[in-house]
Simulated assay, not measured.
Amino acid sequence: MIRVDVVYALIYNEDREEILMVNNQGSSWSLPGGAVEIGEPLEQAVIRETKEETGLTIEVENIVAVNEAFFKEKGHHALFITFKAKIIKGEISIQDENEISGVEWVGIQRANELMPYHPTGVQKLLKYSSIYTFQG
């Protein structure tokens, strides 16, 4: 199987208690993110992918979740790393309409429905934290 690393940004609006999510063209809703390029640090990948999908520049905080899955039909072994992040500049705008059909703030309950692979729910992710360090 081919290893595929994928990063996501968990961006939370505390005032409105909403999570920023993207609607992937022809697929489902997810957090902003995508595949890590060869030789690319995880932190840079999540910043790049979030900018490509939402038009926003983010600051990356700690890791809040690591998920793993086998996609036998594609021959992929995927590792999903979710970082908590905050917006530092920009306005929401779809950068590639062939890839993303929508970017929306959704309530926590709806985010839980859209991301069943986090069985403890988004509320727990907001409390979790594991230090990420790029050692060069």
Score class of each variant (00 low, 15 high):
S28V: 15
V4A: 11
V7C: 01
V60R: 04
E68M: 07
I47T: 08
T57F: 13
P41D: 11
I2Y: 13
Y12F: 12
L31N: 01
E52P: 00
S101H: 03
L20Q: 00
S93D: 11
E37F: 15
A45S: 13
W105A: 00
F83S: 05
E49T: 05
L56P: 00
S30W: 04
E61P: 02
Q95G: 13
V106W: 03
K74F: 09
Q109H: 10
E113Y: 08
I108L: 12
E73A: 11
A65F: 03
K84V: 03
S27V: 09
E113H: 09
G102F: 07
I88S: 01
W29H: 09
K84Y: 04
K124S: 12
E104A: 09
D96F: 11
G75Y: 08
A65H: 03
I81C: 06
E104P: 05
S101I: 12
E73Y: 14
S93H: 14
L10G: 03
A111R: 06
G34Y: 01
Q109S: 14
Y128F: 04
L79P: 02
A111D: 09
V46H: 03
I2R: 14
P116H: 12
N23M: 13
E49M: 04
S93T: 12
V122Q: 05
V60E: 06
E52H: 10
T54G: 04
K89T: 04
W29R: 02
K72G: 04
G107P: 02
G107L: 04
D96V: 10
V103A: 07
K127Y: 05
G90K: 07
I19H: 00
G39Y: 10
G34L: 02
E17H: 11
R16C: 06
Q44K: 14
E73T: 13
G34F: 01
G34N: 06
E14P: 00
N23D: 11
G107N: 12
I100F: 03
E53W: 07
E113S: 08
F71E: 10
L126M: 09
I108N: 02
T82N: 06
G33K: 10
E49K: 14
K51P: 01
S101K: 09
